[in-house]
Amino acid sequence: MSRIENRIDDVISQGREAFAEGSESYDRAIVAVLRLASLFEEEKRFSEFLAVVTAEERRGITTTRNIAAHRGYGAMNAEVFWRTVTELLPDLLARIRAATRA
Rank of each mutant, 00 (worst) to 15 (best):
L39D: 03
L93R: 07
E21C: 15
K44V: 04
E21G: 14
R71H: 13
V31N: 10
F81A: 05
P90C: 04
G60K: 10
D9K: 15
E21D: 06
L93E: 12
V11L: 07
N77C: 13
E43H: 02
E24T: 14
A20K: 05
R7Q: 08
L36V: 02
E43G: 04
D27V: 10
N66H: 02
G22W: 00
I12K: 13
E5A: 15
D91T: 15
R71S: 14
S23P: 15
R59Y: 09
I96M: 12
A98W: 08
R71P: 07
I4A: 00
E57F: 11
G60R: 13
I12W: 14
S25I: 00
N77W: 07
D91Q: 15
I8V: 04
L36I: 05
Y26W: 05
F19T: 06
L93V: 13
L93T: 09
R95M: 07
G74M: 14
T84I: 04
Y73K: 15
A37P: 04
G72A: 12
L92H: 15
E5F: 07
R83Q: 01
A99V: 07
E57D: 02
E79R: 12
A29M: 06
D91L: 12
A78M: 01
I8N: 03
M76D: 12
V53R: 07
M1Y: 00
D9H: 11
L36D: 11
M1F: 11
I61L: 07
